[in-house]
Design a protein around this nucleic acid. Sequence first.
DNA 1: GTCTATAGCAGGATAGAC
DNA 2: GTCTATCCTGCTATAGAC
Lengths: 216, 216
Amino acid sequence: MKQTEKNDSPKDRILNEAEILFAEKGFHAVTVREITRSAKCNLAAVNYHFGNKENLYLEVFKQRWIPRAKRVRAAFQKTVSAGNGQEIAEIVHALAHAFLKGPLTDDERLRHAQLMIREMAMPTLALDLLIEEVIQPFFREVAGRLRPLMEEAFEKERLMLNIISVFSMVIYFNFARVPVRRVTGEEYDENFKEKLVDHIVKFSVAGFGMNGEEKV
Amino acid sequence: MKQTEKNDSPKDRILNEAEILFAEKGFHAVTVREITRSAKCNLAAVNYHFGNKENLYLEVFKQRWIPRAKRVRAAFQKTVSAGNGQEIAEIVHALAHAFLKGPLTDDERLRHAQLMIREMAMPTLALDLLIEEVIQPFFREVAGRLRPLMEEAFEKERLMLNIISVFSMVIYFNFARVPVRRVTGEEYDENFKEKLVDHIVKFSVAGFGMNGEEKV
DNA sequence: GTCTATAGCAGGATAGAC
DNA sequence: GTCTATCCTGCTATAGAC
């Protein structure tokens, strides 16, 4: 069950295979030869369609990564709209579910997380695009939905740190599968992912409701 | 203020510069020529001292990354021993502080996180080493310290997920500086890092104390 | 638009002088 | 142990036939 099929155009096949390979190995570890071999097309095709390797990498984000991120966000929005959206737990659950179970296949989800992680840890031109088009707007939407559910005294900064914390868990559980498996002894099957969603919701909701002042 | 000074041996200088470059750019994006140029030594030195480029990468982890991780852990242990170690907040604070402020310089901390992230998202031989020698033992120590402070009914799995969540925040705030800056508008100065530690402690302690059952 | 062939160069690694 | 010189593979990118 390969993602790239013969009926796609060479250009599409290149984008598909390039995304898989870039996600698995990173930009520099992947060669144009490898991409065109996987895409069953000619070596020159990358340069013909995308100019050069670097631009192909950018196009992977523009034409594959960003649309997929938008599907994840749409899934989040749909879930939230389906409920009454008046509960913090509901919003966090929609978020964790969209990322960890959501509309993507398991392979897609892993690729998606790996590409993002690589950009965050080692930014290229693509990161600006991601932040501008996906991360910022999504973050603002979540903040906008949560703010009215918070107590008055809740400062803006605390809300932001809370949301980042939820994202940090969701992202971490997605990309750090190897150490998580080793530490928990669990496989990433549907059952475990369900437990993760549940955990993130409970942990975060408690964290959101924290009493502001810790005991010194 | 360069880390590598003339009085170090070429072998040490290579290790120092290689770590910096591998952290910044990743294994494949760095060339042996670049490393030896930075280390002000000859091109052949890498092969003479380390056999080949890949083995140099492993040695960076063995001789630089792991010892540094042990310094972080030692800082955590020292802080915990200094208190009475009977408070969850105290342990989480020691953890967050060790990672986000701790004994490392800011450059070291960033490099350290980047190397780890890269291994987690795209494992090589080095990751087994890290998990075996650092991640597992540290994780077990934290679990061992926290378990007696939990209520009886606390299952093992919930404790593990809690600890992973703390790590996820600590790690995320360390490596995802670019998007965090963009979203919060804050710079990573001492003041902001202090706020982050504080936030992680409050959020986590609340999360740990969560009531088990969420409202449906 | 797709191919073959190849230019042109940078990479890791080694041989052998000192 | 450290150097210079060099091998040779494999890369990106392009020219030009079809």
